[in-house]
Design a protein around this nucleic acid. Structure first.
Length: 653
RNA sequence: GGGGUCAUAGCUCAGUUGGAUAGAGCAACGGAUUUCUAAUCCGUCGGUCGGGGGUUCAAGUCCCUCUGGCCCUGCCA
């Protein structure tokens, strides 16, 4: 049900002949911000005051006069400086909801002009363990795909794996020199990620050793500068005080990085075998890079190792996807594009778009100081190169109208350059969009890590959430109180749905562009704005439907007119009917959080309805059936909405 | 140095192309109630929307500036 479109249409008719571009102004109809003003409001008259040279209230009145909307609205009022407030007829809401409830798409129609979307999301680097940072891309991308598909678009989801990058050089080097054979045979992925971390740690250590003297000197200089400023500063001199403050911050920053360096060194030097390894393998970063270069140039040994490692790594991440219920149409990693890169760079060079600079092959773009480097001095290609090749491949294979990149905000400059380069290559007929998102922060407001600085594995977090959900949801006391006799199996299924839902919901409920604090304690708390609250609303409503014993699909019930006598049920009905509008709104800026806010609103409104409107104990049978159908519509909307977020529902909890 | 982004209640966050008296959850406090699943509902408390200037009939929202945070900035992704 597209309420907004319907209202806009009526206003456009009324505005036709009055102004030149009715569509531009009908867009100024929105849900009322305050229910006291009605259901919808049209803020059309005020901006027209200048162009028409009239008083906005008069304009509003003349619009209202021309408006033919009596069949939909019980009142149309002009208020304040020229707002037009609309209140829908309850009869209209009742018949619309009745129609939507009996429809398996909840009255949501497919778009008239479906588009083809390629959605690039998740894209972890395999051979590195997945962590909380991978959640956002995966969950947001998956939800966007589902919403797009539900609205009738053609969607190709693609997991652009990092399966060819520098990390493989590290793993290969690690495997050649540090592998624990029996550990590798027992659990290959665990051993490979140990090797990756080991190599990374040593590289970090070596960098730290080479930096420590310089950093100490920096700290001395910073301190001296601060002392000089303090000595020089006159009391009351604001500018000087500011400089002292800045110098002080600088000292703190340098001190912090020095401590980081010292920590890295202490970690290695405190362990004799690590220390020996670090000294037995100097300039490890270069050695690892060499392994990467050998892999890329087709060295048989490294290629064989890569072929050996990759299936393990993919199996590992697919375990996570299976658990999260996520499927991709394509999983074409960077390695897939590698054969195309040489030719691509050649074409870019011969067309003059790219040129050699400081030994590298670069594309210089207007508005950017630094070029986009597509081939390094040592001949290696970069992700900019494979991203360009990926665009070409996708255009050729799928002719998409839109390609979405669900990737964190730190890469926005990369994408700006990439899109500019694609435009320079003449790819104008596709919309390239970076759907960026913020960082997942820990309780300290810094990127989510353990106290020792290591990242926390994603699987561990999923287990943790499920386990906490189990403790709360399946608490024996609670189950007894709610008279829920569940088998062990059902209890675990509920905990899984609630725990995983909690993690996805916590992510999706924030505006994707914001950073947010990952607080597992809070997200599995079952009060407030959490998935469990919504899942619980669904279970409560389902319970009523079950207990009623009524077959809502039977023709006599299905065609029954609804009654919206109580404001609680009228408000709920209005909410439910906005589903389609909300989904379209989600896609305007690719914001799943809009859908989340909507579902939370339904759940809260349902709670009010539940409190105030007895269903099975309603005054008469007709009212009971009417309310049952409202429960049914609520269930279906919550379920579908959660499904579009990738969150499961359970019939009882 | 250059560029990007953010700053809203004690805490975590919303805030639709600028719209009417800035919202929610948590926390705190007070009520309802033996419930069709109380994991509920209602109420109270809590904000010079970082500071200053500007545009506008109207600014949390747009522009300028200052302060502070985070991110990026030629060979990682």
């Amino acid at each position: 049900m597209k309420i907004l479109d319907t209202l806009k249409g009526r206003f456009e008719q009324a505005l036709d002949g009055l102004i030149d571009n009715p569509a531009a102004y009908s867009a100024r109809i929105a849900q009322a911000r305050d229910p006291r003003f009605g259901d919808y409001q049209a803020n059309i008259a005020m901006p027209l005051a200048k162009t028409l040279g009239k008083n906005p209230v008069d304009i509003a009145n003349s619009i209202v006069q021309r408006l033919q909307i009596d069949d939909l609205c019980e009142s149309v009022d002009v208020a304040g400086p020229g707002f037009i407030n609309l209140k829908l007829r309850s009869q209209f809401l009742a018949s619309s909801l009745s129609q939507a409830a009996g429809n398996d798409r909840l009255g949501v129609s497919a778009v008239r002009n479906p588009q083809t979307y390629v959605v690039d999301y998740s894209a972890p680097n395999v051979a590195k363990p997945m962590h909380v940072g991978h959640i956002r891309s995966t969950v947001i991308g998956d939800s966007l795909c589902k919403i797009l598909r539900f609205l009738g678009h053609r969607v190709i989801s693609d997991n652009h794996l990092g399966d060819w990058g520098t990390q493989f050089g590290m793993v290969i080097y690690g495997y050649k020199h540090f592998v624990d054979r029996s550990a590798y045979e027992r659990a290959p992925v665990a051993e490979l990620s140990r090797l990756y971390r080991l190599v990374q740690q040593i590289i970090g250590y070596q960098a730290a050793v080479s930096q420590i003297d310089k950093t100490r000197e920096q700290l001395r200089l910073a301190i001296r500068r601060m002392q000089e400023l303090i000595a020089k500063a006159d009391a009351g001199d604001k500018k000087a005080a500011k400089e002292v403050k800045a110098a002080d911050r600088n000292v703190a920053a340098v001190r912090e990085s020095l401590e980081e360096i010292e920590r890295k060194i202490a970690n290695i030097e405190g362990d004799s075998s690590l220390h020996a390894a670090a000294h037995g393998h100097p300039v490890l970063d270069q050695r690892a890079q060499l392994e990467t270069a050998k892999l890329h140039s087709g060295d048989p040994e490294n290629l064989a190792l890569w072929n050996q490692f990759l299936p393990w790594c993919i199996e590992e991440i697919e375990t996570v996807y299976r658990r999260l219920g996520i499927k991709f149409d394509l999983q074409l990693g960077e390695s897939f594009y590698h054969p195309m890169l040489g030719d691509l760079v050649q074409r870019l060079l011969s067309s003059g778009l790219a040129q050699q600079s400081e030994g590298a092959t670069c594309i210089f773009l207007e508005g950017y100081d630094a070029p986009m480097i597509i081939r390094k001095q040592d001949g290696a290609f970069l992700y900019a190169t494979s991203d360009l090749a990926t665009i070409e491949y996708r255009l050729k294979q799928y002719s998409p109208d839109v390609i979405l990149y669900v990737v964190d905000h730190r890469q926005s400059e990369h994408f700006a350059k990439l899109f500019a380069a694609a435009a320079a290559l003449g790819y104008h007929h596709v919309t390239l969009k970076h759907v960026s998102f913020g960082t997942v922060l820990g309780p300290d407001g810094k990127p989510f890590k353990t106290r020792s600085g290591t990242v926390i594995g994603l699987e561990y977090l999923l287990d943790e959430a499920v386990q906490r959900a189990y403790q709360v949801v399946c608490h024996p006391e609670r189950l007894q109180k709610a008279n829920l006799r569940m088998t062990n199996e059902e209890q675990h299924a509920v905990a899984e749905a609630v725990g995983l839902g909690a993690i996805k919901y916590a992510d999706l409920c924030h505006n994707r562009t914001s950073d947010y604090e990952f607080d597992i304690e809070q997200m599995v708390q079952l009060d407030g704005n959490t998935s469990a609250y919504i899942q619980y609303s669904f279970a409560r409503a389902s319970s009523i439907l079950r207990n009623s014993g009524v077959d809502l699909g039977s023709p006599n019930v299905d065609s029954l007119s609804m009654e919206l006598v109580n404001t609680a049920e009228r408000d709920l009905a209005l909410y439910l009917l906005q589903f389609e509008d909300v989904l379209h709104q989600c896609l305007e800026d690719y914001l799943p959080s809009v859908l989340v806010a909507y579902l939370y609103g339904i759940a809260k409104q349902y709670a009010v309805f539940f409190d105030q409107c007895p269903v099975l104990k309603a005054d008469n049978e007709h009212l009971m059936l009417s309310r049952l159908r409202i429960c049914d519509a609520t269930c279906k909307t919550l379920q579908k909405g959660l499904e579009l977020l990738g969150i499961a529902t359970v019939p009882r909890m």
